[in-house]
Design a protein around this nucleic acid. Structure first.
Lengths: 334, 334
DNA sequence: CTGTTAGCGCTTTCAG
DNA sequence: CTGAAAGCGCTAACAG
């Protein structure tokens, strides 16, 4: 059973190709009778329109690109779940690209997108400074929506969480638990969310008169091994912090590992709080207080935004921030 | 800067479209000089061939479909990472589809694939019994490779792990730890991996004379709430098992939750072992002994298999099993 | 209401 | 070595 196309349907029905095409797209200038005959046969022969021919003709691909730094992080997995739930309903395909936190890769991915997708959802790579590749997309009239990690250099829809506030609250949580010296561990201050989280954290510290060595920032990288050493060094010092706020889950896990290796107990010696969407966070030893982002909803919101743009045929999206709240989940230690 | 195509290049160079096309595809019947001129201009104008036109013409899409049940499970995230690493290099795009463990959805996804992709990588949904949709793909000459969850009803390449052996060893691990009554918790015996894991577990029990109420099987579903009740009921009984082998991570987490709610301690009252690829498993309270699958390598192997088929233009893949070993990770309880 | 025709951007015979 | 022309499957302008 080779692929059935319009021509074959037309021959079978003694109609022209265009009539069949119109009948299937429910054109009002086709008789009810013909429509039914055509649709019946199409159904019977399991006719599936050739997506490439359609794209070539209509310049619409019914495909969306999703560009993320990595996949083995529950935040992104959940976000894609959310995106998929919207796109599946709308009949769009999802092309997934991983930048592996590499600007070079991100650029080459983006440059191959034209003609392939109708819109782009992106969470920028840590490394990305220059955004001219994204500007290029806008010039090519491909709508683009940022989520989580955004750039203010480009005016478009951005779906984010209330990171400053959440970080502020989480820091107050550490203070309330009696922390004396608090350290914020950053992944890369090139990331918008990292900046905001740090901002919220430091603001809380200042408001509570945590200054000097009561307030500290450790800059980590995307290299886990290096981070381990950095954190170990900090926690080996006699004036080590007794509370740590990590920007991302991965750094929290590294921190846990360091504490275990140094035989420091959590949360007695060190209190830890982090942004995280790990499914098993509740089972951690001891339970980790987390700021949980609504990843699924973020994905849905971003998908909906791009869909709206496509439906209304708006190529140039307004600069708009959709802010969804994160939730602080405190877990009593056993 | 609107999209530049062959026609424009040809005009600019005073050549015909076909010459330009041939020059770019390095045809041997084009002079070196012309080739260079063409390539230079193409580079300069950042010419990107229209993928849909190419697909329409050549019937090759340079795109692979990946169909998985869900994404928020580290196994699949890692597998896709592996697939992507191979496909990125080979210049293939990845179309991701989620079946949400629903046969209906899987079928409708598969039916829309013809003409859209060159090959399919699939991990079947729990629910899927009937595989005629996959047979259909084979008839349409689209190569298909199974990974993790496979069907023996279709002859093709299958990338799996040594589940029977791993489960056997993990069960012996429980026995060595002094377990008296061991229960295997299954997700769905319709899944190939579940069957094998159970088989390995039960074989070990038999070999060690665990019979009668020393050996038990609990059948769970994809509904977490329901599973919670089923496990709770089992663990509330006076003759409750003191060791549990769960088929998948999610059931292990549910088991942990039940134990916490019933105030049973792990691993004193109940020993737990599971297949899992959770990144933070080492930090669980208490540490969980896991059988870790080489998810990334599975993805790579599956991707490589489909790529080989496409390169050699083999449409009908031989029935072949690629078996990668899982690793039992024992963790001392603190 | 239906058919004819052109063309989306590309590759690939077939002719020079 | 290069060009002209056909056609992949589809939609849409134009013509009846």
């Amino acid at each position: 059973m080779s692929k059935v196309n319009l021509k074959q349907l037309a021959k079978e029905l003694n109609l022209s190709v265009s009539t069949v095409s119109r009948a299937l797209s429910n054109s009002h200038e086709i008789s009810q009778e013909t429509k039914e005959k055509v649709k019946y046969l199409a159904e019977k022969l399991n006719y599936q329109p050739n997506p490439h021919a359609m794209s070539l003709r209509s310049q619409k691909t019914k495909t969306i690109a999703v560009i993320i730094p990595e996949l083995s992080n529950n935040f992104f997995a959940l976000a894609i779940d959310g995106i998929e739930s919207i796109m599946q309903t709308a009949g769009y395909q999802l092309l997934i690209y991983l930048s592996h936190e590499d600007q070079q890769k991100e650029v080459s991915i983006v440059n191959k997108l034209e003609g392939r997708v109708d819109g782009v959802l992106i969470c920028m790579a840590t490394e990305t400074h220059d955004i001219s590749h994204l500007r290029g997309l806008k010039e090519k009239k491909i709508p683009i929506v940022f989520f989580d990690r955004v750039s203010n250099k480009l005016n478009t829809v951005k779906v984010i969480t209330n990171d400053i506030e959440s970080a502020y609250k989480a820091t107050e949580h550490l203070i309330a638990r009696g922390a004396q010296r608090i350290a914020y561990i950053s992944l890369s201050l090139n990331i918008s969310v990292d900046q905001k989280r740090m901002q919220g954290c430091l603001k809380a510290l200042e408001d509570h008169q945590y200054t000097g060595d009561k307030k500290r920032v450790l800059s980590c990288t995307i290299n886990d091994e290096e981070n381990y050493q950095l954190i170990k060094k900090m926690l080996s010092s006699p004036t080590r912090p007794d509370a740590i706020f990590t920007c991302v889950e991965r750094l929290a896990i590294t921190t846990y590992t360091v504490c275990r290796d140094l035989r420091l107990s959590i949360p007695v010696d060190v209190k830890v709080v982090t942004f995280s969407n790990m499914p098993a966070a509740a089972l951690l030893s001891p339970p980790l207080t987390t700021i949980s982002q609504p990843a699924y909803e973020i994905g849905k919101a971003a998908a909906q935004a791009i869909l709206d743009a496509l439906n209304k045929n708006i190529v140039e999206l307004d600069d708009e921030k959709i802010i969804l709240p994160s939730i602080l989940i405190e877990r009593a230690s056993t």
